[in-house]
């Protein structure tokens, strides 16, 4: 059933796939992000309680959702790497880590900038912000562990183990932090608790969510290509590729 996937374990095939996918992912990302953002900023109706500050939702919620999904995707890639002994799976995992960390940072920053007008403070130990912060720590751990090894093959495996440990922990952390929050703060009005969101508010959110997902895909492909070049730099096909990509410009310059 999964046989069609196996050729992509070869770095060369994976590289070609990245090149094919990349333009489409960029087109999708730019299209969705511009439509979603303009719609969300200019055309979506105001929130009756929060006024125009709620428009931060259009970047906060997608980045928060996708920062978690990216971590899960990393763990899946790590699992694939372990089960099938794919080097490209580990490379994909580590290619995604900085993007996930960046999204987590975005979710934290926009959460703080939204919290300031709503709660009157940049940082409140709100359950979701706290779990997002811990998620950032998990990302930092994986990236730091990967960076600590000289041998990147070994580094990928080690970081994969840590990603899996983290992914088992994410739900536990999530629920424990939520529970801790209800213990310590009582019933505060959560800015995210919108039981029913109006469709004209929801559409731009979904489009932006899709746009962020495309963006993650696009940056992952380029970072995966970087990883492949870095580790296969002595292979003839990489050298041929580098010459093809760069030398035409150089000859023109001369």
């Amino acid at each position: 059933m999964w046989k069609w996937l196996h050729p992509y374990a070869k770095t060369e095939r994976a590289y070609q796939l990245c090149i094919t996918l990349q333009p489409w992912l960029w087109v999708g990302a730019i299209l969705c992000l511009s439509i979603g953002t303009v719609w969300g900023l200019a055309f979506a109706p105001q929130d009756y309680q929060q006024g125009d500050s709620f428009r931060i939702i259009y970047i906060h919620v997608p980045s928060a959702i996708l920062s978690m999904s990216t971590y899960v995707a990393m763990a899946i890639a790590a699992l694939v790497g372990m089960v099938w002994q794919w080097r490209t799976a580990y490379m994909t995992m580590i290619a995604m880590a900085p993007i996930g960390a960046a999204l987590t940072f975005i979710a934290l920053f926009t959460g703080a900038a939204w919290g300031k007008p709503m709660w009157g403070a940049w940082w409140v130990w709100d359950a979701r912000l706290t779990s997002e912060l811990i998620l950032l720590f998990l990302y930092i751990g994986v990236i730091a562990l990967y960076g600590a090894f000289e041998d990147k093959q070994q580094a990928g495996k080690a970081a994969g183990v840590m990603a899996l440990v983290g992914v088992v922990n994410i739900p536990i952390i999530h629920y424990s932090v939520e529970w801790w929050n209800t213990l310590h703060q009582g019933a505060t009005i959560s800015k995210f608790d919108n039981p029913s969101i109006a469709p004209e508010m929801l559409w731009p959110l979904l489009i932006n969510l899709l746009g962020f997902a495309f963006f993650i895909g696009a940056v992952t492909t380029i970072r995966l290509r970087n990883e492949i070049v870095l580790r296969e730099q002595h292979r003839p096909w990489v050298q041929a590729l580098a010459e093809q990509a760069l030398l035409p410009h150089k000859t023109r310059e001369r």
Partner: peptide, 15 residues
């Protein structure tokens, strides 16, 4: 932005 210009544009800019 209905008085929230700083926060909204800061968020979108940083993102």
């Amino acid at each position: 932005m209905g008085g929230y210009a700083f926060y909204v544009w800061l968020s979108f800019g940083v993102t």
